[in-house]
Computed example of a mutant assay.
Amino acid sequence: MSNEYLLDIRQIMDMLPHRYPFLLVDRVVEFEPGVRLKAYKNVSMNEAFFQGHFPGLPVMPGVLILEALAQAGGVFVMSTIQESLEDKVFLFTGLNKVKFRKPVVPGDRLILKVAYDRHKMNIWRMHGIAEVDGQVVAQGEFSAAVANKGDM
């Protein structure tokens, strides 16, 4: 396991097609190929979704916490597979056993932990935990496919 493995935002943008306001992973801080990845998202009051969710009571939408976990999973898979990523995209295919435990608010650092469960051909299954200050805020199992951009 390497605690020195780091991907910054530029390297993450090379792997994921997402851009502002939908890129939800700021940095990768741990990576064990084929096993797990740890990343984070700094949650700022400047996030576009806080304008409407909710005025006067800003709470990060749960679906965006799951999206952040999925994006971290995408970085995990793209960092694990040994082929060209140039024409590939990582697409959500399913969610299971999702639970939301606590709200995420401006000023929080959302820690994103994803771990490999299994994969068959181009379908990957992982489980993820999102934490703030050591407390679980959301968790679940998810699956995704590595697809060719040209097939979409």
Rank of each mutant, 00 (worst) to 15 (best):
M1W: 11
L7M: 12
D8N: 13
R10T: 12
R10I: 11
Q11E: 15
I12A: 11
I12N: 08
M13H: 01
D14V: 05
D14A: 15
P17V: 08
P17A: 07
F22M: 15
L23I: 15
L24M: 15
L24S: 08
L24K: 03
L24R: 03
V25M: 04
D26H: 13
D26I: 06
D26K: 11
D26S: 13
R27W: 05
R27N: 09
V28W: 08
E30N: 11
E30A: 15
E30V: 09
F31W: 12
P33Y: 10
G34K: 01
L37K: 02
L37E: 01
A39C: 08
K41W: 07
N42Y: 07
S44D: 13
M45W: 07
N46E: 14
N46D: 15
E47M: 14
A48T: 12
F50P: 02
G52H: 10
H53T: 07
F54Q: 03
P55K: 12
L57K: 10
P58H: 07
V59K: 09
V59E: 09
M60P: 04
P61C: 13
P61G: 11
G62M: 03
G62T: 06
L66E: 08
L66K: 03
E67Q: 12
A68Q: 06
L69S: 00
A70R: 06
A70V: 09
A70Y: 13
A72E: 03
A72V: 05
A72T: 09
G74L: 06
F76C: 06
V77E: 08
V77K: 01
Q82Y: 05
E83C: 11
S84R: 11
D87T: 09
K88Q: 09
V89S: 00
F92P: 05
F92Q: 04
F92T: 11
T93F: 01
T93D: 00
G94R: 10
L95C: 13
L95M: 14
N96M: 09
K99V: 10
K99D: 08
F100P: 01
F100G: 00
K102N: 05
D108E: 07
D108V: 06
R109E: 12
R109G: 11
L110H: 07
L110E: 02
I111E: 12
I111P: 01
I111Y: 10
I111S: 02
L112T: 00
K113C: 08
V114F: 00
Y116M: 11
K120M: 14
K120I: 13
N122T: 04
R125V: 15
R125P: 04
M126L: 14
H127T: 01
H127D: 11
I129W: 00
I129R: 03
A130K: 01
V132T: 04
V132C: 03
V132H: 02
G134V: 02
G134H: 00
Q139H: 03
G140R: 02
G140M: 01
G140P: 07
E141D: 14
F142A: 03
S143G: 13
S143F: 05
A147E: 02
G150R: 09
D151R: 02
